[in-house]
Nucleic acid binder design. Structure first.
Length: 293
DNA sequence: CTCCAGGCATGAG
DNA sequence: CTCATGCATGGA
């Protein structure tokens, strides 16, 4: 299936640390697990080429489902126009301009970002894959070797020991308890999408392992609340360098500054900051982590 | 060896 | 309320 996606950039989207189940198979070609199916994708100029390697789930949503998942309908251009007034953002826009915020499953995002705490992206991906392999449904007939992300109920039946064996460490307990909470909520969990962002944030903060940083990630990547602004070490560095002359600044101030500078789509700007500094300018102080598998 | 990673929960003051 | 500390794991 071929989609028009002129101002979209597949690779910068998939390496931007918002999803953990996509891997590069060769230059510019990607393979990911999305909503219980295997999806391969590559981009040639403005055309996004996709193919489902398994039936069911997302494959039946057709091109509309894909346009939704890759968020091709959102008007990123207007956000970029707004940011371009600020010379500090120009080089970032040039590098990350086609980066979109994917429409991912809220429960998968919740668990993935609980795992992300005090962790690095390479290990997060391994952990999430282990969780899928252990408690998710096998995709396809038998031997595809790929697994969808588990349901809340399935994951809540894991043992803490088995989760630790996936490399989760002390986060195993949080994953287990949060899964049980979601499973216990049942349909009420699905109804959370109807809440305004402030109330949704309060609800999500009740889950074990979810604090001020993780909750913003879940809002942004799981519920597509584009005003959410996760502040991690990279975004903190970026904001301090660009807006505070390199001086250390509290997350509280940074958050308010971000809302003032970037407004209702601060989360998009945040991804530019994160990706730009993590995969480029951070090399001054850190070697760039080798991209996975 | 040390330092770091998309932080959080907990306890002390 | 704010602040300090422990926490599992593996790559660089």
């Amino acid at each position: 299936m071929i989609l028009e996606a002129a101002s979209f950039d597949l690779s910068s989207t998939l390496i931007s640390g918002q999803c953990f189940r996509w891997n590069r198979v060769e230059a510019g070609k990607w393979r990911g697990i999305v909503r219980g199916t295997v999806l391969s994708a590559h981009q040639i100029d403005g055309l996004l080429h996709t193919a489902f390697e398994s039936p069911g789930g997302m494959a039946e949503a057709g091109s509309e489902g894909l346009r939704y998942y890759f968020d091709l309908e959102q008007d990123y251009e207007s956000t970029i126009r707004q940011l371009k007034g600020d010379p500090r953002m120009d080089s970032l826009i040039e590098r990350c301009g086609g980066l979109h915020i994917l429409r991912q499953d809220p429960f998968e995002v919740l668990i993935s970002f609980i795992i992300s705490a005090f962790n690095n992206i390479l290990r997060i991906k391994r952990c999430v894959q282990g969780v899928a392999r252990g408690w998710g449904d096998s995709i396809g007939d038998s031997g595809s070797g790929e697994f969808g992300f588990p349901t809340p109920t399935a994951l809540s039946r894991a043992s803490e020991e088995a989760l630790r064996a996936c490399g989760l460490g002390y986060r195993a307990r949080y994953v287990l308890e949060s899964s049980a909470c979601v499973a216990g909520l049942g349909d009420a969990f699905d109804s959370l999408v109807d809440l305004p962002t402030g109330e949704l944030r309060q609800e999500l903060l009740r889950f074990p392992g979810v604090g001020p940083k993780v909750v913003e990630c879940v809002l942004l990547f799981g519920y597509h609340r584009l005003e959410a602004f996760p502040i991690d070490v990279w975004v903190r560095r970026a904001m301090c360098e660009l807006f505070y002359r390199g001086r250390e600044t509290s997350d509280d101030r940074i958050a308010r500054r971000a809302q003032r500078e970037f407004g209702a789509t601060a989360g998009i700007a945040q991804q530019y900051l994160f990706t730009g500094f993590r995969t480029g300018r951070g090399e001054r102080t850190h070697r760039r982590p080798r991209e996975v598998v």
